[in-house]
Design a binder for these strands. Structure first.
Length: 185
DNA sequence: ACCGCGATGCACT
DNA sequence: GTGCATCGCGGTG
């Protein structure tokens, strides 16, 4: 996965991330759910301009934007770049495939389907914290492995937002049991 | 199945 | 002081 991959409009990049394997220090699996943020999107952290928190979104594409959510969890984004805009893809869920043991140590939870079924859970399972904010995605500890086939994708409204809730910018692997929440076919 | 709520940090109205 | 790009638990149908 080259850095050029992310140097495109976020709504173009987001669906292409479904099926891409995300590893952090070798722990992770294929991404099954993402959401697109940015541009003239009032739900985006970048909507009101640059701040210390969202600085990474205004930086070069192909880097991580990690922020703290509700004071407790971390959330991981991949920074993209439409011309003149700050955009990012929120990584919401993946299918646990590599490093299941490490995930279970970090998250004391029995069902495998709940290890990475949400942005906060995923960061906990992969050991992602604010220390990764701004880090390049094409260098350790990150590793992104291209998908071999184009998977069936379903779209729908984003989760947990109030502004621009009508926009259909959630992309998920159709029928996956590892989603943060089901999505109508 | 759904609904409500507490935890806990910090950016912003 | 208010509101989150959340999660898990405990209550009620």
């Amino acid at each position: 996965m080259t850095r050029d991959f992310f140097a495109r409009p976020v709504n173009e990049v987001a669906p292409e991330l479904i099926g891409v394997t995300l590893l952090v220090d070798g722990v992770g699996g294929p991404i099954v759910e993402v959401e697109a943020y940015g541009g003239e999107d009032p739900a985006s952290h970048a909507y009101n301009g640059p701040t210390p928190r969202n600085a990474a979104m205004f930086g070069p594409p192909g880097h991580a934007y990690v922020y703290r959510s509700y004071g407790i969890h971390w959330c991981l984004n991949f920074v993209c770049a439409a011309p003149g805009r700050a955009e990012a893809v929120l990584v919401r869920a993946l299918r646990p495939e590599h490093g299941l043991g490490a995930m279970r140590v970090r998250r004391a939870v029995e069902p495998e389907r709940a290890l990475c079924s949400g942005p906060g859970k995923l960061c906990q399972a992969l050991g992602i914290s604010g220390a990764y904010d701004g880090a390049p995605l094409d260098a350790p500890p990150f590793e992104l492995l291209p998908r071999s086939e184009t998977p069936p994708i379903v779209t729908g409204p984003r989760i947990g937002i109030t502004r621009a809730a009508e926009l259909s910018r959630r992309y998920a692997l159709a029928g996956s049991p590892f989603l943060s929440r089901p999505l109508r076919a």
